[in-house]
Write a protein that binds this DNA or RNA. Sequence first.
DNA 1: GAGACCTTGCAGTGT
DNA 2: GCAAGGTCTC
Length: 798
Amino acid sequence: MTQAEDHEAFEDASAPSLSQRAMAARGTPHLDGLNRPQREAVEALDGPVLVLAGAGTGKTKALTCRIAHLLATGRAKPWEILAVTFTNKAAREMKHRVGQLVGGAIEGMPWLGTFHSLGNRILRRHAELVGLESNFTILDTDDQLRLLKQLLQAEGIDEKRWPPRLLAGLIDRWKNRGWTPEALPPDEASGFNRRGGELYAAYQRRLKELNAVDFGDLLLHCVTIFRTHDDVLEQWRRRFRYILVDEYQDTNVAQYLWLRLLGDGHRNVCCVGDDDQSIYGWRGAEVGNILRFEKDFPGATVVRLEQNYRSTANILAAASGVIRANEGRLGKTLWTEADQGEKVRLIGHWDGEEEARWIGEEIEAMRRGTRGLEPLGLDGMAILVRASFQMRAFEDRFLTIGLPYRVIGGPRFYERMEVRDAMAYFRLAVSPADDLAFERIVNTPKRGLGDKAQQTVQVVAREAGVPLVEGAALVVEREMIPAKGRNRLRTLLEGIARWHAASEAGEPHVELAERILDESGYTGMWQGDKSPEAPGRLENLKELVQALDEFENLQGFLEHVALVMDAGSEDGGEKVSIMTLHAAKGLEFPAVFLPGWEDGLFPSQRSMDESGMKGLEEERRLAYVGLTRARERLTVSFAANRMVFGRWQNALPSRFIDELPAEHVEVLTPPGLYGGAHGAAAGFGAATAPGAAATPESELEARAARADAYASPGWKRMQARRGERQLGQPREASSLVIDVEAVPAYEIGERVFHQKFGYGRVEDAEGDKLTVAFEKAGVKRVVARFLTAADGAGDVPF
DNA sequence: GAGACCTTGCAGTGT
DNA sequence: GCAAGGTCTC
């Protein structure tokens, strides 16, 4: 059937199209305000379309308008459109925007969601085709690891040498590539002590026994079903007349197969993406998918969105300068009509704490209005970090100064211990045969059931071939464990049976949940706990029960949690956002801070070690994503010293700093390191901890390392630029020599300040080496140039 | 069996 | 610097 026939058949079947008539009457308001390429992307409804959308070019707008257009022209009903995103956030956003465009006229879009949530829904309808029941459980990483651990133990594999996490990673990768155990290439299967393939198969068998799936299965099982059951595939192909995919550059092989299988019939597939923003290679994403689109779908319409509506010209130029260094791009030339705006600011700091302190002050200043700029709300500011451990310095600092912040995608609500425990109880109420849930809570709260007792239950259950609850019942019945534990185990089993019955009988789930936590003694356990975090945990439990209210039943809630994993509730109030660069994709802020631009941290050493040039290019794309999040103000920073695993490590400025085009960058002088250029130079490249720099030995090391530091391209460039800027002091800008005379002298008894140790009083002086009694850090020997006079040190706030 | 204490490995990104 | 896991003691 051709596209036209297809279209007509639909029109015939669906009576005169109301929406079409309405559109004729209303015109096409949803097309207003689109630029030419955007409009092209929206109006090319039939056949394959690839939209290459640079950062900030109105990608989501094009996508949502396209959906609106499909609906308005009567090409498709809301339920005939499959629209796929990567994150729940993106799905929510798109739903919201389509709703706005179309007006409340449509009842949402049932098939707009993430790959995983859509895969989940499809899989539940055909679960039996892959040996599951439709009420299967979705395992979280925790469960998955425990399962693998058991498997390895059963196989007698040394966990130390072959850690379960490694196997989990392998299996995840295989699933992302669309490989079932049967289809696993031999060279892959021979990994993990030559037993990878075998263990993968065993893991899948065990999942089936537990009626459970992991994340990868949600897609891979669908693919298997589509491939082996033509009738099922045909049914879904007929249903989804139009397919839209957001962030296509992030699709992995399994997702690609899933899409191709669904889209190959009518080929009404519209993929939107940006190869320059592909940052999920580590998760199995294949940039190749987007690069290959025109081969996969011959005759595809390709539209490029290149006009950027988000950032100032300076910011855009800085981002373009960085991404230019990548090879193998499809190549887009972003342009803007926006003003030059402020230059991108670059600043180096002594250490991570100083960096956090400075950013905190900048934020306060921006909030008040600074440098002749408009005051800016905290909601408009974001700090984007490479790795989540970097967030701590900011949290610590902001808590100290009382700056409100929110961490996005931080430690998740549903990953907290007490929430998981509670959910394990809920899972048992829904399906008592959930062995993993049973293991989790059998001795929580303490029921006197230690390793020995639990082993007995395991053995009995395995021998009888029954779930653990039933095995436990046998153990109680046969009196195989001491009376004390036995009685408590019996109580637990009775509880589970009772909760399950209540759940089946349709008892209101919120009350049931409360009752479960009560009767199991779980709430009581935390009430009796004197530790400082106990109240918080009880609070979380309360919140959990409240969250239940929005769902029909426990099962629906559990499913949602497994897929979404984020509490969603956002308390109001102006706050600075802190998040990883990955989490920031798709967002934008008037002011953005990008701290931690140090080689090894960003680009991440691991990424480069594991994937070489490919890894580096992905890191660079990540830098590009970060830079392009900013609308007006952008500040990049790095620190010379950073705490890693509790030790101070020195670092060199990121190579990406070299790639920032100088003419769009303003280099700032770090505060607190007196004397600007050369004062700062003293800090960078120091081989030792800031505090330890006091001893002569470490001072020598510091000098040696400093010479290296100057060889670092990032540093050289920064110095060169500083030199240009500070025309009056060109000698300092390139000087390798510490200008001792510039170091102020201190007197005995003088109050001083040290970046690391805080305030103190000079007790003794020997040349430039001073003994200082610090108020908090005690007595230390420090070099004079790491100190400032405590009073009148205007650029060193406490 | 449970809690205190010590050792070890770790933190790269997330549906 | 911290959490998880192991070991030791009650």
